[in-house]
Amino acid sequence: MGTFIIRRVLVAISVALTISVVSFMLLHLSGDLATSIAGPEATAEQVERIRVDYGLDRPIVSQYLDWLGGALTFDFGRSYYYQSTVVELIADRMPITLTLGGLALALAVSISIPLGVLAALKRDTWIDRLALLFAVVGQAMPSFWFGLTLIVVFAVTLQWLPAAGSDGWQHFVLPAIALGYYATPAMMRLTRTGMLEVLESDYIRTARAKGLRAGSVIFKHALRNAVIPVVALAAVELGFMLGGSVVIESVFSLNGLGQLAWDAISRNDYPVVQAVVLIIALFYIVLTLLADVANAALDARIRTR
């Protein structure tokens, strides 16, 4: 298990470096940064001054190495727009995004796995059909529309929960439901398919032949094997929710990372854009790593591979 983790960590580090190179280059290839920072009315002199001031006149490799050196010591420079460092901005927004993503994932997992198991056990009955309907609706409904519906029903009409802001836990309930429901269908269906496959397997017949109780057969012997692909999917879903919750964040006026990225892109605030891209990539990498480790813990065969 130890060597397995070390190997995976080394892979993760090289992936992170690759992403940092690619994202840095893409940004610099997207056009002349000095021109876009200076704005459409700037004179050639002003553009040149910005180019020198921001260090954009130097070779791209040395710009990257400077940036990387800073990134390794958590120094991503200053925002072009806000009067603060990039690290401060991110530290400010990160808790909101993490809370939202964590709550949404917890919600999605606690609904999708029991529902998937139930649908598999009650295959082709009305319970199964109802679960399928729930999944199809979740996959078909745009998340901004579902978010707005939640606001109309629970915040405006019933007035149970606040519609916007991020001051207390109440503010996270509706966005977590909106974001979590979006992640639920795929996980539920994967759980259902996995359970149906595993329940047909020989080792389940062996478990039943031992006279084990139904709960033990289903949860100990079947679910543990069926849930392995779901763990990997959950990691990707969480990465998506952390990096791509822009829509939900703006519907509920939550100032999270997604909102920050969106604002930074529209304001040509490149240091912020670059840092957010790297951090979201790191989220994905760490989550994939965790999913790999979790799967290895679940399935002995993966460890020795």
């Binding site: 020989d202 080792y203 478990a207 100990k220 012997h221 543990r224 094997n225 399935d299 002995a300």
Partner: peptide
Amino acid sequence: MTALNPAYT
């Protein structure tokens, strides 16, 4: 080959 559960000792 398939009668034992791969996940348990």
